[in-house]
Structures are given as structure tokens and as C-alpha cells.
Simulated scan of single mutants.
Amino acid sequence: MKKLFLVLSLCFTAALAAQEVTLKPFDPAAYVAIDSEGNENRTVKNLVYTYLIDNYKAISEKEILPPNGGGDCGFTQTFENGIVYTKRNCGDAALATGEVLTIANPNRESVLLWVEAVNKIFGDYGQNHWNFDLTEYRPTDNILGGFFTIKRDTDYTTVLVMSGC
């Protein structure tokens, strides 16, 4: 079943490859709750998934990932515009929030702006910086915060979002 889903997702992605996808802007303020004492709560479980549910229509059901020796391993789901979301809870990913966003033929600048906006949820205090080829956005001094890795392939880009908080 997983192989069938992957093949269908790739076919769908290839069909959209001719169209450049611009990610809808991420508004950090929409994901910050204020408690009764006026303090900000920036803890959002599955931040990327919440953003997708708020901004895109799901075109598949959640497909549970097979367990990796123990309990829940996460899920994957396809959204409109050639976007596939995967939440991984397996192995060492349990130490951090690992969310993967795969986008068919994305507009590169919209991805970079999206990453910088999402980072504000993790308490961006100017510690995150891009590496030389704009494939990693992370704290420079091994401090806690958001970690982003962008991998470009021919017809799609994968963004890994991890929180070291």
C-alpha cells in the first residue's frame, strides 16, 4: 500500500511539475497563543501540519507509516498543489519534532521566506543563519532552536523542520 501511495504521489507531483508552486505565507502570529497572564505560548504540536490544514485542502487520507520496532511511527498525507506532508516519530526522530514538507516544483524564494517565518515560532533571536548554498537554516552556535534542511531534486523540494527546543 505504501508503494502504491508513493507511486501515485510521484505521478501527481510529476503532473504538477510544469507549474511553479508558491507557498502561501506563514504568519507566526497566528500560531502564538496568549495565556491568562499575558505570556506567549509558542508551543504548537505539528506546526507544519497545522499550517497545511489551515491553508491547503487535503486530497488524501492520512497514511500511517509502518512501526519501526515500537509504537507510532508517524503518517503521511497529500495536499493540493503537489504538497506532501510526513510526520516521523521513528527512531532518533523522537528526540526532536521531525516534520517533512515535500513541494512539487516550488518557487525557491517562497520556500526561503516560509522557512524564516516558521523559525519565528521557535523563538528566533537572530541565532539562525543560512549556509552558503541556502540548504540549511540553523543556529550557528549549537544553541537550541529551529533546524531546517532544504533538499532540491529535479521536480520537487523537501524541507525538513526539526525543533531542538
Score class of each variant (00 low, 15 high):
140 T>Q: 14
85 Y>L: 07
27 D>V: 09
157 T>H: 06
70 G>Y: 02
115 V>R: 01
130 W>I: 05
61 E>H: 09
162 M>E: 15
123 G>I: 10
159 V>Q: 11
116 E>W: 00
43 T>W: 01
53 I>A: 15
18 A>M: 06
56 Y>A: 09
107 N>C: 05
47 L>P: 08
118 V>Q: 12
43 T>G: 10
151 K>L: 10
8 L>A: 14
21 V>L: 11
62 K>I: 01
126 G>W: 01
137 Y>M: 08
59 I>T: 14
109 E>N: 11
116 E>V: 00
164 G>A: 15
161 V>H: 15
47 L>T: 07
80 E>A: 13
37 E>Q: 12
94 A>I: 02
19 Q>W: 00
75 F>N: 10
49 Y>A: 15
94 A>W: 00
136 E>L: 12
163 S>M: 09
12 F>Y: 12
24 K>I: 07
112 L>W: 01
148 F>V: 12
1 M>Q: 12
15 A>V: 10
144 L>R: 09
93 A>Y: 03
48 V>A: 12
35 D>Y: 01
146 G>D: 12
131 N>M: 07
7 V>R: 07
63 E>R: 03
118 V>R: 11
119 N>L: 03
101 L>Y: 00
100 V>Y: 01
106 P>D: 04
103 I>Q: 02
128 N>W: 01
96 A>R: 07
155 D>P: 00
147 F>Y: 08
85 Y>H: 04
157 T>P: 08
149 T>D: 12
1 M>T: 09
54 D>P: 06
87 K>D: 02
117 A>K: 10
7 V>L: 13
150 I>T: 06
33 A>N: 06
130 W>Y: 09
74 G>T: 02
2 K>T: 04
100 V>F: 00
25 P>V: 03
25 P>L: 04
38 G>E: 04
26 F>G: 05
45 K>G: 11
117 A>C: 06
145 G>N: 04
17 A>K: 02
67 P>D: 14
151 K>A: 13
21 V>Y: 01
10 L>M: 10
50 T>C: 13
96 A>S: 11
13 T>L: 14
125 Y>P: 05
64 I>P: 02
59 I>P: 06
117 A>P: 03
109 E>K: 11
138 R>V: 13
5 F>M: 11
95 L>M: 08
96 A>P: 01
118 V>S: 13
55 N>L: 05
28 P>W: 03
45 K>E: 14
140 T>V: 11
139 P>Q: 07
165 C>A: 15
161 V>S: 15
159 V>N: 13
27 D>Y: 01
